[in-house]
Design a protein around this nucleic acid. Structure first.
Lengths: 189, 189
DNA sequence: CCAACCATGTAAGCTGTTACATGATTGA
DNA sequence: TCAATCATGTAACAGCTTACATGGTTGG
């Protein structure tokens, strides 16, 4: 998978960045982070300790999160200043068509974390890059269907590609909906 | 990832099963298989030799494919009888909601290969299990949005979940479309 | 003859998983 | 006290990727 559209220099993994985003949104213990994945309806990450704790240790060793005594007994992980910078750098990378093709869900995950930026201009740019990416991916799919490879498809294959087209059309509708719903950024400039 | 919904005993990976399906549909060389992934609009698998050849060697050692002299110079890989059986076993496993949540694309990949079965009854049952799976996943998502976790969502988080709902609705529309499009099986058992 | 393609492979590494193990705290 | 939950960790490995390496064939 490589590391998708990361653009950061720390060698962070998707899981690491997701954890970073979560502790940035709200300081939590490792156990609380596991709970998030356990209860989440999206099956992207395992909630098993073998996934979470090593990733957290790496974040800590990089100085992107730090453990501080929490209100109760245990301790909570907080995002540090450079942690927030790394997170922002990840979120600011525009979406490409290849990103969308290889891992559409990651594009939505990044969007979900974008409010951490509290920068509606960044969100706007993200959604615009998302739209171009999906449009490009969509026209590539349509070209594939029209081309020689498409002609060679079985009925099942053609139907599967048709779903790909429908999914991308739905993604574009969603992006428009999101742009309408979000507080319209002080878009001047 | 585990191995998704496999249900077979050979320890085959998704890549292995996809390769098996491709050589079953049409005997090919390893190189030709690489080309398929290279030209394909879906970015699921890498076309690099390091992925393909080890997987093919494993299929061969399991006796699921065999190399036979092709029409030209090189040789082609063919699916053996037990290869076809393994493929069929994979394709016959019904889709669950968890399958769909963890890897929706895999559900469509399996569907695309289902015509190898040339068994419209199997296709029918597959699409029905797909529909139930997506319906269940959809109502879980809606419940999540209504529940306490949903109330705690940020605007961005809510929008991301809304896309998940839209994607599942599109998948259901697609399934109905597929059922209408496919030659209606001699469904009278 | 040289570039481009056909064809196959290995080595090292990354990411994440399952399975196992441990112990503290809390509430019934 | 006993079960459930909180909390953190390690070991082994699966699955795939990138990068590297090699050689044959074909066509301009």
């Amino acid at each position: 998978m490589g590391r998708g559209a990361t653009g950061q220099e720390w060698g962070l993994t998707t899981l690491g960045l997701a954890l970073l985003a979560l502790v940035n949104a709200q300081p939590r213990s490792g156990y609380a982070l596991r709970k998030v994945f356990e209860d989440s309806p999206v099956g992207r990450f395992s909630s098993s300790p073998g996934s979470i704790y090593p990733a957290l240790k790496k974040l800590e060793s990089l100085g992107l999160v730090e453990s501080r005594p929490g209100p109760g007994v245990g301790s909570e992980l907080h995002a540090t200043r450079s942690g927030r910078r790394a997170l922002l750098a990840w979120l600011a990378v525009p979406v490409t068509a290849t990103d969308y093709d290889r891992d559409p869900d990651l594009c939505f995950l990044r969007f979900a974390f974008l409010d951490a930026a509290a920068d509606s201009d960044l969100t706007l740019r993200y959604l615009e890059s998302f739209q171009s990416a999906v449009k490009e991916s969509l026209s590539r799919l349509r070209a594939f269907l029209r081309g020689s490879e498409g002609a060679a498809l079985t009925l099942h294959g053609r139907l599967a590609v048709e779903h790909g087209i429908a999914a991308r059309e739905a993604a574009l509708r969603w992006a428009r909906h999101a742009l309408e719903t979000l507080p319209t950024a002080a878009s001047g400039k």
